[in-house]
Design a protein around this nucleic acid. Sequence first.
DNA 1: GAATCATATGCCGATATCGGCATGCGTCAA
DNA 2: TTGACGCATGCCGATATCGGCATATGATTC
Lengths: 117, 117
Amino acid sequence: MILGMARAATTSDVFNAIAEPQRRQIPVLLRGGERPVTEVAGELGMTQPGASKHLRVLREVGLVQDRRAGKQRLYAPDAAGLRPVHEWTGGFAEFWNESFDRLEAYVQDLKQTRDEE
Amino acid sequence: MILGMARAATTSDVFNAIAEPQRRQIPVLLRGGERPVTEVAGELGMTQPGASKHLRVLREVGLVQDRRAGKQRLYAPDAAGLRPVHEWTGGFAEFWNESFDRLEAYVQDLKQTRDEE
DNA sequence: GAATCATATGCCGATATCGGCATGCGTCAA
DNA sequence: TTGACGCATGCCGATATCGGCATATGATTC
């Protein structure tokens, strides 16, 4: 009989994946371009195995993609998995209220940025 | 000497607060109106102490507010603390791309809803 | 095939939760 | 004051991580 779970089996859940501060930095870094594991580890000050483990979690929840390039494996952001989080938080936008118009402005900015490309 | 921390002291961090599936349900419920602890526990199928603990975490990261009303303590959503998460995820919006127009539509919907009230 | 480089996995100790239970504390009514 | 009610806290066992280290797996070159 099982009593008391430390954390309701959260791995492979996006919300949990980004709960880790160190892990959260990785997608940000990759936004600047795809990188091999070693480089991620170096730039974020973690060990190679550490980076590999975090990248595995991020891949499982759809936050990074990887492609093989010779001996290396290049990781790139795949923020599709982040949409649910963005939408969930957005569902509370009405409670920020004072800054609501800024959200609209922010989206308009984003739209403009995209259309200019 | 300290080696190996289970989770880099994340409590009192919004990202961690919403990483817990059960805890994440509470702000959603409170969106329907302020409620006392017992009611939260009842509607979400948790014990009263369980609800109290989750509410404490949520309060510490600014996701719920509370006011005393007689013997009761009423909790209400205070999504201000959710803005950083929304903005952080929004920083990756350019990587969703295909669904970008839907985000715009979603915001417009929100705007309309608000203006109608 | 052997050596080498890049990355992933496995094992470990330390630790931060989570849920259940009992109990403490604060408030209101009689 | 005493009792009843609502809620918060403390203690506990079970467990899911996290980081460090050593090592296995993969791929390339000689």
